[in-house]
Amino acid sequence: MPEPTDPFVIEPRIASQTHTLADGRELIYFDDVDSSLPETRLPDARELAARPPTASMRQDVLTGDWVSIAAARQNRVMLPPADLDPLAPASPTNPSEIPDQYDVAVFENKSPSFGPLLADDNQPEGVEDLATIGIGRTRTSVGRCEVVAFSPASTGSFGALSRTRARTVIEAWARRTHALSQFDAIAQVFPFENRGEQIGVTLHHPHGQIYSYPYITPRTQRLIDSVEQYGPSLFADVLASEQAGERVLLQGEHWTAFVPFAARWPVEIHMMPHRHVPDFAGTTLEERDELAVLYLRLLRGVDALYDTPTPYIAAWHQAPTRVHRDDIRLHLQITSPRRGADRLKYLAGSEAAMGAWIGDIPPETTAANLRAAIARADEENPV
């Protein structure tokens, strides 16, 4: 059986404070341990329109999947110039989403795919309700979408952060996972980072997001099916198998990163904690400290594969908030469509239509290339 989950702990040297934006959305500042910022922060002085209606979901009766129809997202900012960066600290000429200077800031998305429950009689009635199959079923997209601004800088990504700043972001992930998991309507919390225009990012500013869903996501449901077939030791056995193989990239006291046995993407990396932890809220301070170092080394290695930055999705998969906590382990999945210096993998007929994947590069070759890239990055830019 897995070890009991540790009680939720915080790094007391990383201060946080909560504010309210002009339209009622929540904003939370997280300060580095060596921050020079003042405790008092400026209020949001903008005059904002009321928040848009919460999106609605429609069920695909052929799969049971829920599709959020979030029309307000059509109006979001698309690759603005640096002087109009909506994640930069506000200035007289740029009334941004963040009113003052900051180290790390987390706030509710202005046009979310999943949002607060407003006056509505079509809210989900739990995961059992959402698991029911029927034609023409709709529900309000209750949940929460948050933006995590990694830095006040207008360009960059997580891999460009300092070790101290990376640790602050990880602390924010842990605290927000814990807080969001307390909402009855939220079934799963998902922190992630999209990096690069080839992935579809709409802002160059270094940032990630946290999605909180009212249902258990399709990918996690497939994982639950595998656990039920294999047994509760699935993650422990996968980790042991990978640690004994040739695809390990980095290994510390608490975490191991590797290219998985059946990698789908040209670049695909998984990272797992060495003990059973369902989500970031269950990690210890020591695990978060080591992760800040290993994760930076990993991402800098991904960028060192070629002469230009590598587009990727960094997805932190966590257990659902109330079920399967003892057998689904927190783990990272980094994927990139980049299969060469000037080539991308596109999802065509077999992958996009049938979900039947064809790998372009043997995972062992990818692992060897990544280990060499990490070594180059460590030499050029040590953490």
Results as ranks from 00 to 15, higher is better:
residue 160 A to S: 14
residue 270 H to N: 12
residue 108 E to L: 02
residue 285 L to D: 12
residue 184 D to K: 08
residue 299 L to W: 05
residue 326 D to T: 14
residue 360 D to C: 05
residue 189 V to I: 02
residue 61 V to G: 04
residue 73 R to Y: 00
residue 309 P to W: 04
residue 271 M to V: 07
residue 113 S to L: 15
residue 332 L to S: 06
residue 322 R to Q: 12
residue 72 A to S: 15
residue 229 Q to W: 05
residue 265 W to F: 15
residue 203 L to A: 09
residue 206 P to A: 01
residue 4 P to C: 07
residue 271 M to W: 03
residue 323 V to N: 08
residue 117 L to D: 05
residue 201 V to T: 12
residue 354 M to G: 14
residue 193 E to L: 05
residue 247 R to L: 01
residue 363 P to M: 10
residue 175 R to F: 03
residue 225 D to C: 01
residue 123 Q to E: 03
residue 257 A to W: 01
residue 29 Y to K: 04
residue 250 L to N: 01
residue 114 F to K: 03
residue 107 F to E: 04
residue 80 P to K: 06
residue 173 W to R: 12
residue 71 A to Y: 11
residue 256 T to R: 11
residue 134 G to K: 06
residue 203 L to F: 07
residue 101 Q to S: 14
residue 139 R to C: 08
residue 358 I to T: 14
residue 309 P to V: 08
residue 52 P to K: 04
residue 329 R to V: 14
residue 81 P to K: 06
residue 162 S to W: 05
residue 233 S to P: 00
residue 259 V to C: 13
residue 28 I to V: 15
residue 164 T to E: 13
residue 167 R to K: 12
residue 327 D to P: 04
residue 241 S to D: 14
residue 88 A to T: 07
residue 67 V to W: 13
residue 29 Y to P: 03
residue 298 L to R: 06
residue 164 T to K: 04
residue 182 Q to T: 15
residue 209 Q to I: 01
residue 16 S to N: 14
residue 236 A to G: 11
residue 155 T to G: 06
residue 350 S to M: 15
residue 66 W to T: 02
residue 46 R to A: 07
residue 14 I to H: 03
residue 252 G to E: 09
residue 23 D to C: 04
residue 44 D to G: 10
residue 119 A to T: 12
residue 13 R to Q: 14
residue 86 P to Q: 02
residue 290 E to P: 06
residue 284 T to G: 10
residue 352 A to R: 13
residue 168 T to R: 03
residue 39 E to A: 15
residue 326 D to R: 11
residue 52 P to F: 02
residue 304 A to R: 10
residue 312 Y to N: 00
residue 87 L to H: 07
residue 168 T to Q: 07
residue 374 I to D: 00
residue 214 P to R: 02
residue 150 F to M: 09
residue 49 A to D: 15
residue 286 E to V: 09
residue 168 T to E: 09
residue 205 H to Y: 02
residue 42 L to T: 13
residue 251 Q to M: 08
residue 15 A to H: 15
residue 34 D to M: 11
residue 229 Q to T: 11
residue 284 T to N: 07
residue 168 T to M: 10
residue 176 R to A: 04
residue 316 W to L: 10
residue 250 L to M: 02
residue 244 A to M: 05
residue 84 L to G: 04
residue 380 E to M: 14
residue 186 I to K: 08
residue 118 L to A: 13
residue 180 L to V: 00
residue 141 S to V: 00
residue 190 F to T: 05
residue 356 A to W: 10
residue 23 D to N: 11
